[in-house]
Amino acid sequence: MGNVFVICEIEEGKIADVSLELLTKGRSLANDLSCKLEAVVLGNNLKGIEKQVYPYGVDVLHVGDDKRLEVYTTLPFTAIIVELFKKEKPEICLLGASTLGRDLGPRVSSALKSGLTADCTALEIGDHADKKAGKEYKNLLYQIRPAFGGNIVATIINPDCRPQMATVREGVMKMEVYNQAHKGKVNNIDVDSILKPADLVVKVMERHMEKSKVNIKNSSIVVAGGYGMGSKEGFDQLYQLAEVLGAEVGASRAAVDAGFADHERQIGQTGVTVRPKLYIACGISGQIQHTAGMEESSMVIAINNDSAAPINKIADYVINGDVNDIVPKLIKLYKKNTK
């Protein structure tokens, strides 16, 4: 009772990155609260899955292993988690702000009549005084999130309802092994006793999933292109720059919408969040929805032919000029100086 829970997702037998990131965050929240970190995994053929999560500091792993949970659908997952939470009474529950988490989270929160905060960018423990009601609250979860299209940042709390639920996007929290030798225990959920025929009425008839190929999130240098790259060919020059620098290529939404790059490269509020050592923004204006996903980069270089582009305001170096001229020059000069 009163522990921190993380609902984990699995992709092809492996715990998803977003879940490992949340376990890292969950572990530090559990340490702050001096409580346990527990996790939930639902799926099929999960034997040995606990080995993947123990190093992240999981004390108890609740496993629901059943053929009917092979492919995610809302109702059975909700039924099992609601049942588990009624028994375990978690203090905090974290989920990925993924297609799964954003489908499941609100359903569970509604069934438990507990608040859910979407797309948090920071989670902290803090106190709260409700002056009107004359009440003091200790150790609440501060759920910090952007809203209004990124124009404001709100701190949300759930003073009276438990669990305090929050979703977080992939790449927002850092993933860090807590202790390779850490061991927890497994609790096997009796799935059969929970699932009812009514939970199984939605059927997945067909699925086409692509494996994610790019790994911009973990790259220490990101070369990102925007609509200013002009064309797919223009954008493709960035792969050459990225290759010599050992970087990954990212993109703005306008570049993705224009077909210059795949959606999985999109950086920003509706894409991934990156915090590399160096971020090179090429032909990107720097709208708030884009900068939300890169503003924590240690260093930013902006290449833009508009000296008033908003991106310049957050850049450490501003290169004023045409990307088609500057990108080839950078490749050439880098090669020359590293030979």
């Binding site: 759920q143 701190t155 949300i156 759930n158």
Partner: peptide, 9 residues
């Protein structure tokens, strides 16, 4: 159940 504690522009 959720309350806005603080809003920053």
């Amino acid at each position: 159940p959720t309350k806005v504690k603080k809003i920053e522009n």
